[in-house]
Design a protein around this nucleic acid. Sequence first.
DNA 1: CATCCGTGGTT
DNA 2: TAACCAAGGAT
Length: 354
Amino acid sequence: MRDLKIDSAAMSNDLLAWYDVHAREMPWRVGPADSAAGIRPDPYRVWLSEVMLQQTTVAAVRGYFLRFISRWPTVLDLAAAEDADVMNEWAGLGYYARARNLLKCARTIAADHGGNFPDSYERLLNLPGIGPYTAAAIASIAFDRPETVLDGNVERVMARLHDIHAPLPDVKPVLKERAAELTPALRPGDYAQAVMDLGATICTPRRPACGICPWRDPCAARAAGTAAELPKKAPKKPKPIRHGIVYLAEAANGTWLLERRPDKGLLGGMLGWPGSEWNGAPVPAPPFEADWRELDGEVRHTFTHFHLILRVMTAQLPNGFSQKADQELVTHRDFSPASLPTVMRKAFDLYKGR
DNA sequence: CATCCGTGGTT
DNA sequence: TAACCAAGGAT
């Protein structure tokens, strides 16, 4: 097996040359020309975008990022925000622990770091919501430090470049080593984004465009004809089907009864409809006694580790209803389906379209 | 360390 | 349509 170390400088140069021409435009990104001239992006924007991009596509993030930046232009603005405002703005993006940790992190930056992000991998790693990937991404992209990012793109590119057939996630440390060998001392931030752009646009999961890849010559999987089947992954567990019942109660004046879910667990910290537990055989749990009517149809939604089928009940919210601790009466004026997690919005859509 | 944690687009 | 996939982190 040839030693890629010998060619690593040439390879990173080839990739950067490709990136100089093909870098994708993103609202949080400083283009390669400006970056090469020494202009760094705002660390706040890099951090915000990287957290939003965790397990999430660029297309889905773009609008959320622009709305957050518009509403909270600096990390100090975000640190001073109300919890509910941030959670409402995050609604629909998923993985809601990210939003809770985002606020924790912003407040830590404000209280302990004078409003400035630390510029080293180690100190970034200590902040809530920042793991190995995000710490390396911020250190390299915002501060141009030669840290190695390892995300799904980089894993795929390295597995193919070296024709590694051992399955993820066990092989991850090996891929990290291979990636580190290629990380250049010059323009490491651009390099990090270049590898990820390469994975997103050319070295794609299916049907990689090997013919136009800047690394087509050194790629071992291309030579072996195995690129499309890499990286190998451990088989996934089947998703069970769970059932639940939600209760939509609207008062005559248009006020809705909602519940703020506990911070931990599924949809933690988000607003939702009162309802049963979600399991094999849900026990009805109406929030008040009434003549509940079941809507035709059902809500189907798939979470990370289970499928959910919801029955939707409706009744009129009585005048003078006194809510419990975690319940909220949201007036017609304040009610916005967009501030609900998607499964809850689906239940509302079923009601609206009845 | 295995499990938990969303969502929308693509194939 | 069911499965796969995406700029992962916390516990």
